[in-house]
Amino acid sequence: MKPTVTTQDVLAPLPRLLVEPIVRAALLEDLGRAGDITTDAVIPADARLRGAIVARESGVVAGVDAALLAFTLIDPTITVAADRPDGSRVERGEAVLQADGSARSILSAERVALNLVCRMSGIATATAALVDAVRPHGHARIVCTRKTTPGLRSLEKHAVRAGGGSNHRFGLDDAVLIKDNHIAIAGSVRRALERARATVGHLVKIEIEVDTLDQLDEVLEVGVDAILLDNMSPDTLSEAVRRVNKRAITEASGRITAAIAPAIAATGVDLISTGWITHSAPILDLGLDVA
């Protein structure tokens, strides 16, 4: 049976140029100065192994390409294959990927492969839960933030897309997001917006964070591309969306959980952003089973 994929289209893999340095760094960290001394001492050099990374619980898979790469960077002669592409829903007992080759090589790569695929699948699974929670209640998309693990941002944001979510900005350089500290130092909402508009290029989007309806009214007088409505109740959000009246993209943020997300989506906001899906999502339990 073809696996169920959460995303509407097949999720394009990240370029190897982005993924390989992350996987190499993880392998170097694990192998240290002398390699896998346990496996080298215990396992004969000519031993072969056929194994599969298998789900111990149901969820959504991500990080499969990174896990495959962990094996082949250790030993290019290992034969690897993905049973479930990123974005697939997997049930307990189902295989995610296969590896066949040198037992020493597969065991040496096992932990890095599992660390990456378990972590990313956990993010995809958490994202999918939020996406499923809001789907019946409006058009809002679930988006991630910059609250990612240092060095893993590209993989973690890819995992969000695998779970059916969307990405907010990738870094400080690809969009303007004026937050409360920027406003405080600039002196006012208007001054912050005017300075941003006078400085950035014509293709750069500008978003501003507001905490109150009074701030929102000031923003609407000046104009902006997107408005982050921070820590507002559903009732206040509904009023904010009414006042914006599609003149800007509306984004709700602040302590978003699967329990509160449906009420937030029902306000009519365009985006619901949350940091916990990348910084605090539990892993999806996967393990290597040896045939």
Results as ranks from 00 to 15, higher is better:
127 T>P: 05
142 I>C: 07
137 H>I: 05
223 G>I: 05
108 S>I: 03
144 C>R: 09
210 V>I: 07
194 E>Y: 04
113 A>I: 03
111 R>N: 11
213 L>N: 07
141 R>G: 11
177 L>A: 11
110 E>H: 09
102 S>H: 05
150 P>M: 06
107 L>H: 05
109 A>V: 03
193 L>Q: 00
192 A>V: 00
164 G>D: 13
156 E>R: 12
100 D>Q: 11
134 V>H: 09
114 L>D: 07
160 V>F: 13
148 T>R: 02
118 C>A: 13
104 R>D: 11
184 A>E: 11
190 R>H: 10
192 A>D: 03
189 V>S: 00
219 V>N: 00
113 A>R: 01
191 R>K: 13
217 D>Q: 12
149 T>Y: 10
94 E>I: 01
109 A>C: 03
113 A>Y: 06
130 L>F: 07
97 L>I: 02
98 Q>F: 14
99 A>C: 13
143 V>F: 09
180 D>G: 07
105 S>V: 02
184 A>Y: 07
151 G>I: 02
117 V>F: 00
117 V>E: 00
124 A>G: 12
212 T>F: 04
129 A>S: 12
180 D>C: 00
192 A>K: 00
203 L>P: 00
211 D>H: 14
208 I>D: 02
136 P>M: 10
133 A>W: 06
135 R>P: 07
115 N>S: 05
206 I>D: 10
163 G>W: 05
190 R>Y: 02
142 I>P: 05
105 S>E: 09
177 L>C: 06
179 K>Q: 12
212 T>N: 04
222 V>F: 01
177 L>R: 09
164 G>S: 13
215 Q>H: 10
159 A>F: 12
135 R>C: 10
139 H>S: 13
192 A>I: 02
173 D>T: 15
189 V>G: 00
137 H>V: 08
187 G>M: 01
96 V>L: 04
155 L>S: 08
191 R>Y: 03
158 H>K: 13
92 R>T: 15
106 I>N: 03
173 D>M: 10
115 N>A: 01
122 G>S: 11
204 V>K: 09
125 T>K: 05
172 L>P: 03
220 L>P: 05
180 D>Y: 07
127 T>W: 08
93 G>L: 03
154 S>M: 14
125 T>S: 15
202 H>W: 14
176 V>Y: 04
209 E>I: 01
182 H>R: 02
202 H>M: 11
162 A>I: 03
189 V>I: 15
207 E>T: 05
166 S>L: 14
130 L>I: 07
156 E>P: 05
95 A>L: 04
202 H>Q: 14
126 A>L: 01
208 I>W: 01
98 Q>L: 13
158 H>E: 15
148 T>C: 05
172 L>I: 13
164 G>T: 10
121 S>K: 01
204 V>T: 15
105 S>I: 00
197 R>A: 15
221 E>F: 06
204 V>F: 10
133 A>M: 08
225 D>M: 02
92 R>F: 03
